[in-house]
Design a protein around this nucleic acid. Structure first.
Length: 555
RNA sequence: GACCAUGUAGCUCAGUGGAUAGAGCGCUACCCUGCGGAGGUAGAGGCCGGAGGUUCGAGUCCCCCCAUGGUCGCCA
């Protein structure tokens, strides 16, 4: 909307200035840097484009800015354009245009900020992808929220999005899982002859629970069952638990992709054979090594072990090859502990002459839990860890969604349980944002009818000229810019910041611009009701993109 | 030791090579007790880890150093 139109207007102004001889002819990349300045006196938008062009045009930035402004032309979008500082062009949007946008928001509803740019593009977001060896822990929470939110934003940007979970339920790891359940089960039958081995078996409390449930339903009849049978039961139970946790987090996958299927289709074998064929693999010490050093890495990697089994990287490569056939844009959401595998996979894909330019990797750092100012210790290898379920029990899904999203993925997160649990507006941004929505609902659905005030959607919005009203409209429109930005740089935390700022703009409006008070003129009242209705849409949409609830009242 | 990331207000953190570096919390003062629970306004608080460089311009890019975290397996 506003930003896209402004950029286009400025491009045309530059071209017009060149045609008129007010600017010399020069080559440039057609990119117009533009942003919303922090200081309100700098306008609604500002661009340093004149400074950027100074070298190419061999002219002073302020002179270039003047030429651009001269050719901006007559439009209803901008009321004021002025040169400031070393050569900025500060632009102020026309209040009449802005108030018209309130009607636009109401007309379009929830999709008012959606984009078309992803239209027809198949995108995949792969995230969580935890193997079913135990419940999802704190370490998975951030990836789950980042991936799911990214998928929601890309959908809003017009993409056809698939949420995908990649898992492995075969191999040694799973064998150990089956053994663990068998050992725990036999313990319940009084058989302690096979102790759990540290580092091999799973120490977690949940294995006791699965064994106990098994015993409760089947008594000792599983005494002579095989390890694979125990494994299947463990996997099924744990996967059901994982899905339940994801459901509580409002995360729903379109596809669960089984690594094992890549062996059945021959895709894994294909990768190995193709790499061998082009001599990207060599045989040494009984194993097949990939020439990672040819891609600038410090050492080569084993791709096929001396026992003939491929290492995990190979099915990973086959999986990405499979993805490249199905999708145009691929995003892998990974924790910092898995990022080392990424270059090998990409290098191998390039060795196989695949185009990897559509693959992005979003790597996020870890989360530390703080309660009462002290770190809550956790370790997934031992029995001592924190599950997402426990966190959900304590702080609720909305808080987990918000706080896991709220930091840039590269930042190590400190998750303060006390803050997340608070139900006070001034302590917890989750409540602050949701309360803004509830306030809008309160005005429209409860207080206005109670006072006998009827909202007329046909009333004009043109009296919306108060600073707080203008600011709120600008903030509502900014959602579109936030979606566009996240689509570009894959940093969904911007949405959490935006939500806070949108709520703040609404609260300022709420404070400065009474809607229902008896001394408010009827036309102003109607316009403010309309703005409130639009703000409710914006707040609800923002919360929906984060999969947070938008309560109509706070009790 | 190598590689990757991080280091910004007392705390938790934003910050597209562009203006006087921002937000929330905490602190101080004020306004509103209303349309729904504390909301709003303002203020104090900064050597952007340190030192060089690149350029019209660096918190942002490059080099070196320091600190923190992650990874460095024929586990995934």
């Amino acid at each position: 909307m506003a930003q896209e139109q402004l950029v286009e207007t400025i491009r045309q102004a530059i071209a017009a200035a060149q045609r008129a001889g007010d600017l010399p002819a020069f080559e440039w990349d057609n990119e117009v840097p533009i942003d919303r300045p922090r200081q309100p006196e700098h306008g609604d938008f500002a661009t340093p484009v004149a400074m950027k062009l100074a070298k190419a045009a061999s002219a002073k930035p302020r002179d270039i800015a003047e030429a651009i402004i001269k050719h901006l032309g007559e439009g209803d979008l901008v009321t004021a354009a002025e040169i400031a500082g070393p050569g900025y062009i500060n632009l102020r949007l026309n209040p009449a245009w802005l108030s018209n946008q309130v009607d636009e928001v109401l007309r379009k509803g929830a999709v008012y900020a959606d984009l078309e740019r992803g239209k027809g593009i198949r995108a995949q977001v792969e995230f969580v992808s935890a193997n079913p060896t135990g419940p999802l822990t704190l370490g998975h929470a951030r990836g789950a929220v980042l991936g799911d939110t990214l998928a929601a934003v890309l959908t809003a940007a017009g993409y056809e999005v698939t949420r995908e979970y990649y898992f492995n339920n075969a191999g040694l790891q799973m064998e150990s899982l089956g053994e663990t359940l068998r050992i725990r089960y036999l313990e319940l039958l009084g058989d302690y002859s096979q102790p759990l081995q540290d580092g091999k078996h799973y120490q977690g409390e949940y294995m006791h629970w699965i064994a106990a449930t098994l015993f409760a339903f089947h008594g000792d009849s599983w005494r002579n069952k095989s390890v694979p049978e125990f494994k299947n039961l463990a996997v099924d139970t744990i996967f059901a638990d994982i899905r339940n946790t994801l459901r509580r987090l409002s995360v729903e996958f379109d596809v669960y992709f089984n690594e094992d299927s890549l062996y059945h289709t021959g895709d894994v074998e294909d990768v190995i054979e193709s790499l061998k064929e082009h001599e990207w693999l060599y045989f040494q010490d009984g194993a097949w090594w990939f020439k990672a050093t040819s891609f600038g890495k410090d050492k080569d990697r084993v791709f096929v072990r001396s026992n003939g089994m491929p290492t995990y990287r190979v099915p990973d490569i086959a999986y990405h090859r499979n993805k490249l056939q199905r999708f145009d844009r691929i995003i892998d959401v990974l924790g910092a502990d898995h990022k080392d595998a990424v270059p090998d996979v990409l290098d191998a894909l390039r060795a196989l002459e695949e185009d990897t330019s559509g693959i992005s990797v979003l790597i996020h750092q870890f989360t530390t839990l703080i309660r009462d100012g002290e770190e809550v210790k956790m370790s997934t290898r031992r029995a001592n860890y924190i599950t997402i379920d426990e966190l959900l029990d304590e702080v609720g899904a909305d808080a987990v969604r918000y706080f896991m999203l709220a930091l840039a993925p590269t930042t190590h997160q400190t998750f303060d349980i006390n803050v997340a649990k608070s139900r006070k507006e001034n302590e917890n941004p989750v409540v602050y944002i949701q309360y803004a929505h509830a306030r809008a609902c309160g005005i429209l659905d409860r207080e206005a009818p109670k006072r006998g005030i009827a909202y007329d959607p046909a009333a004009p919005a043109s009296t919306l000229t108060h600073e707080a009203e203008i600011h709120l409209i600008n903030e509502m429109l900014r959602l579109r810019e936030v979606i566009a930005r996240i689509e570009e740089d894959l940093e969904p935390h911007r949405l959490a910041y935006y939500a806070r700022e949108l709520a703040s703009a609404f609260n300022t409006f709420y404070d400065k611009c009474p809607v229902l008070r008896t001394d408010v003129p009827p036309d102003v009242q109607q316009a403010r009701l309309k703005l409130t209705a639009a703000a409710r849409i914006a707040l609800a949409r923002t919360l929906a993109l984060m999969s947070m609830s938008a309560p109509e009242e706070i009790v």
